[in-house]
Simulated scan of single mutants.
Amino acid sequence: MTPRSPRARRTTVVACATGLLLAVAFPPRVMSQSSSAVEFAGLARYRAANAALGAPQPGTSRVVFFGNSITEGWARHFATMFPGRPYVGRGISGQTTAQMLLRFRQDVVALKPAAVVILAGTNDIAGNTGPATLEEIQDNLAAMAELAQASGIKVLLCAILPVYDYPWKPGLQPAPKIIAINRWLKAYAAQRGATFVDYHTPFADERGGMRPEHAADGVHPTDAGYRIMAGIVEPLIQSALSKR
């Protein structure tokens, strides 16, 4: 694991749900490109949708799926894969855990869900917003989980899907890094009383990537891949909700 360098990243203190202060590390080049956290985090992406959604209906258990393009693409299939379920997709293509943490309060906590399904980290490994150590990725995932639990929201932490190579940034050899974060996610979920969702094991091939029938580009699931994911997570959601 690469040690943190004070010169490599700029730290911003952000006030989040429940009054906690969180230090989020931003690569200097990202901060120079974007003059505000709104631009960086995509806070406007779901602002109108969140306002229109309103509070959950009495007697229902809203679940927010929170993530990047994998979650954003999956949300288009929720009506057929989770019929009748009050499931809400809040994924933004390309986002890293630092970006997601900044919008966690408005796109998760403020929606008053019973549970949140967090799937994130692969874009950090790809370096979408600059270099990120495994420890920094884990810190951001932990911060999201702890904010949710402090708000009485059940947490499902998802293993990062296997990737052999990123089409938009080849040569990074992400497979072992993904395995390392997933190992940490499983242990951390057990420590925090959260639910670990293993999307990695059913999909990984001998190279640590995904088969074409499950992800045509090696990263984003096909319809068949999403159906497998739905079959994995749905019983785990119901089990988590039953423990409320």
Rank of each mutant, 00 (worst) to 15 (best):
V13R: 14
F26N: 00
F104N: 04
M81V: 01
G208E: 10
T195E: 10
A142E: 07
G94Y: 14
Y199G: 00
H77M: 12
L157F: 10
L157D: 06
V117G: 07
A48G: 04
Q33H: 04
A37G: 12
P56G: 06
V88W: 12
G73C: 01
D124L: 10
R192G: 06
G84I: 03
L53T: 02
I179P: 00
A15L: 15
P174V: 09
D165A: 06
I237Y: 12
P167C: 09
D107E: 15
L236G: 02
G59R: 11
G209R: 00
A190Y: 05
V109Q: 12
R90S: 13
P83V: 03
L147C: 15
N123F: 12
L43M: 13
S32Q: 11
S5Y: 09
A79T: 13
R4I: 05
N68G: 01
L185Y: 08
G127T: 08
A159R: 05
L111Y: 13
G171Q: 11
A23S: 13
R9T: 14
A230H: 04
A79G: 03
P167S: 14
P28T: 02
L21K: 12
Q191N: 10
A115M: 03
Y87Q: 02
D124E: 06
A145P: 03
T97L: 04
I153K: 01
R10V: 13
I228H: 00
L111M: 15
T122Y: 07
A15P: 00
W74D: 01
R244I: 04
A114P: 04
I153Q: 06
S151Y: 06
F26E: 00
P27Q: 07
S61E: 15
P86K: 08
S151A: 14
G59V: 08
A143T: 08
I232H: 08
Q191S: 13
R244W: 06
E72W: 02
V63T: 07
A240W: 08
Q149K: 07
T97Q: 06
A148W: 13
Q138Y: 03
A8C: 05
V163C: 09
V24T: 01
T80L: 08
A110W: 05
I160T: 12
V109T: 14
M1H: 10
Q149I: 01
A159I: 05
I228G: 00
G209L: 04
M31Y: 03
A224R: 00
D139S: 14
A132P: 00
Q106E: 15
K186T: 07
H220G: 03
F26D: 01
G171T: 10
